[in-house]
Amino acid sequence: MLDKKLLSILVCPVTKGPLIFDAKNNELVSLTANLAYPIRDDIPVMLEGEAREMTLDEKEQWQSEH
């Protein structure tokens, strides 16, 4: 589980925008950048090259849920 205090200070390295914790996929989601950053061994990997691009369906689902 990601520490809520840590989540409150982390931002997307691309857009400097907010991130959403996706517990199901163990990722930090940036809707603005359309990227999902992995969390490995409880450590967020905040590198653009390590992030995966979200599909349009995923992004729409996130926007409707949050």
Rank of each mutant, 00 (worst) to 15 (best):
A23P: 00
A23K: 15
P38S: 03
S64T: 13
W62R: 01
K16Q: 14
P13G: 09
M46A: 06
E50M: 13
V45K: 11
N25E: 12
C12G: 09
I39A: 08
L47I: 12
E53Y: 06
V45W: 06
L35M: 05
V45P: 00
Q63E: 15
N34I: 02
F21C: 01
V14G: 00
E53L: 10
R40K: 15
L10Q: 10
A51C: 10
S8H: 11
P44G: 06
K4R: 14
N34V: 05
N26H: 09
E27I: 00
V14K: 15
L28S: 03
E48H: 06
L47A: 10
E58S: 05
V14R: 11
V45Q: 12
I39E: 04
E65C: 04
K5V: 11
G49P: 04
L2Y: 02
D3K: 10
L7D: 07
A23V: 11
G49I: 08
M1A: 08
G17L: 10
R52M: 10
V14Q: 11
M46R: 07
S64W: 03
S64F: 02
V14P: 00
P18Q: 13
A51G: 11
L28M: 04
L6R: 13
R52N: 07
S30H: 03
K24E: 15
Y37I: 04
E48F: 01
T55L: 04
R52G: 09
K16D: 11
L35A: 00
S30A: 03
L10R: 05
P18F: 09
L47S: 08
A33I: 03
R40W: 00
E60W: 01
R52L: 07
